[in-house]
């Protein structure tokens, strides 16, 4: 199943890695550099799943999830958080902000694809 993904990460390497993991399996990947950029990009597209980093300039991942959930258009769009911190409180914080799930960096492409497919249905 082909999905449309928005990946928000301030690291170009991470964005490239996500692209590399997802495009070969036929996903369409949009990217944004930070939370603010992410919300701007979301005005024009309707992705099936959003992937976001936490540590970002201008607007971090939590702020971005808040912004997405506060709006009406993407209230139920699944959001996966990419995090290097596997600590439970990190997960809880992401969840209470409205994240659907999380992927621990460095991610395994197979798992990422699976997780995306699962949350997108």
């Amino acid at each position: 199943m082909s999905l449309e993904i928005l990946a928000v990460d301030d690291s170009r390497t991470m964005r490239d890695m996500i692209r590399l993991a997802l495009e070969p399996v036929g996903f369409t990947v949009h990217t944004a550099d930070d939370g603010v950029h992410g919300t701007e990009v979301l005005e024009d597209i309707d992705p099936d799943v959003i992937i976001t980093d936490i540590n970002m300039p201008r607007m971090d991942g939590f702020g971005f999830i808040d912004a997405v959930r506060d709006g009406n258009r993407h209230r139920t769009t699944p959001i996966l958080v990419l995090t290097t911190e596997a600590a439970p409180e990190m997960k809880m914080r992401a969840r209470s902000a409205g994240a659907t799930g999380w992927i621990v960096k460095p991610f395994d492409p197979t798992k990422l694809v699976k997780a995306l497919q699962m949350v997108a249905g």
Partner: peptide, 13 residues
């Protein structure tokens, strides 16, 4: 459902 999870997706998985 607030977190964007949905039941059919889980079942599909």
């Amino acid at each position: 459902f607030d977190t964007g999870n949905d039941v059919p997706h889980i079942f599909a998985a």
